[in-house]
Design a protein around this nucleic acid. Structure first.
Lengths: 106, 106
DNA sequence: AAGGTATTTCTAAATTTCTGGAAATACAGT
DNA sequence: ACTGTATTTCCAGAAATTTAGAAATACCTT
């Protein structure tokens, strides 16, 4: 991962509302969560949520799949893993925040 | 760590210039790096650098110690560890980005 | 095609961020 | 006290973000 990409992803997560969105999607697990349910849960305007979701989708942290009229959102776990891996590799010193072990996905 | 604090720290790192600053400080290791050297290395205006450093200091990711007229900056490793720990705990699902092992500092 | 639900896009206003020149401050040495 | 180096603060402008109402679009059902 390039530094600029990492920064863009950190920026996407660096907003309380978007971090809540992302966390909700992580907790929703593999089945994900529809935009509408996300909106009810977080109690924000639909257009506002849509903008925030777009920010997360653009940087790849969230993916969306249509199911009829509803759009289901999913946290992109592998990308988060890569991002955390980048942070550990580039922004941690041995013996302080590292060693952080990031095992390969089976 | 609270969600709002995590978001604030991610936002601080979510800017290419600030991420470069932080990475430089990590690589500088325990002795840290003076603001002046950082400025020469990154080739940005002194006032711009000062603003970015302040952002990092405010959220606790960077600490500063005076040595005569020069200000030496240090990456706050334990806080980065906490931040990564938060991300793993709150924003990772078992078996996907987790398991990420964050051993305690000795 | 008509109607209903889900979501996005348009538009806009308030706020914040980013940048850096200029001036001010901090500290050391003479 | 004066000079010089290091850094911050003041100021300002351009650009981007955040928010959300209103209108538009997408899709399903009948």
């Amino acid at each position: 991962m390039k530094l600029d990409d990492a920064a863009a992803r950190l920026e996407a997560l660096g907003n309380p509302t978007r971090l809540k969105i992302y966390r909700s999607l992580v907790r929703a697990g593999a089945e994900g969560m529809a935009v509408g349910r996300l909106q009810a849960k977080l109690d924000i305007a639909a257009s506002t949520l849509s903008h925030h979701l777009k920010s997360l989708v653009v940087v790849g942290l969230v993916t969306q799949t249509r199911e009829g009229t509803t759009l289901v959102c999913h946290a992109n776990y592998p990308l988060m893993r890569d991002l955390l891996g980048y942070m550990v590799e580039e922004c941690c010193a041995e013996g302080s925040c590292a060693p952080v072990v990031l095992p390969k996905v089976a």
